[in-house]
Simulated scan of single mutants.
Amino acid sequence: MATMFNPPHPGEIIRELCLEPLGVTVTEAAKALGVSRKALSELLNGHSRVSPEMAVRLSIALETTADSWLIQQAQYDLWLAEQKRDTLQVRILKAA
């Protein structure tokens, strides 16, 4: 799988492509998802990750798949890790 260039945090997708078009507030969405407003706000603002449980909650509430949310999170996490590639202290393993 090719990595995206600077993929958006899944919270940004949830906020801009799911909640805003529906006209749903953070408080209303949090209640629908069965989570605290603070927990959802942290996700929407990129301060927390989509957990497997949150992915399932999102899949139910938004009629999507849990996999799609976990894949978006993984792409975002990998992109962040790749930004540190040149600073990692790793050497190539070779046969003895």
Rank of each mutant, 00 (worst) to 15 (best):
H9C: 09
A29M: 15
G23Q: 13
Q73H: 13
H47M: 11
H47C: 07
Q89I: 07
M54C: 15
Q83L: 13
T65H: 07
A29E: 03
S41R: 04
A30C: 07
V26S: 06
A29C: 11
G11Q: 02
L17G: 04
E16S: 05
V50G: 03
V35E: 04
P8C: 11
Y76R: 02
T87A: 10
A39S: 06
S59F: 04
V26N: 15
M54W: 02
A32W: 03
H9K: 14
L44D: 02
V90S: 10
L33T: 08
I71L: 13
G23I: 12
V90D: 06
V90Q: 09
A96S: 06
A61I: 04
M54V: 09
T27Y: 08
S36V: 09
S51M: 05
A66S: 15
Q73A: 06
G46C: 12
E63H: 05
I14N: 03
A96L: 00
L80Q: 15
R57S: 12
G23W: 13
Q89E: 11
D67S: 11
I60M: 12
L33E: 12
K94G: 01
D67M: 05
L80M: 11
Q89N: 12
D77N: 12
M54Y: 03
V56T: 10
L62Y: 15
P21H: 07
A61M: 13
L33H: 14
K31W: 07
P8S: 14
R57I: 02
V50M: 02
K94P: 01
A61Q: 11
R15E: 01
L78I: 10
K38W: 06
A81I: 05
R57C: 07
P8F: 05
A95V: 12
I92P: 00
E42I: 00
Y76N: 02
V26D: 07
G11A: 05
V90R: 14
D67V: 06
R15F: 02
L78C: 06
I13M: 01
L70N: 04
R49S: 14
R49N: 14
K94D: 02
T25I: 08
Q83W: 04
L58V: 01
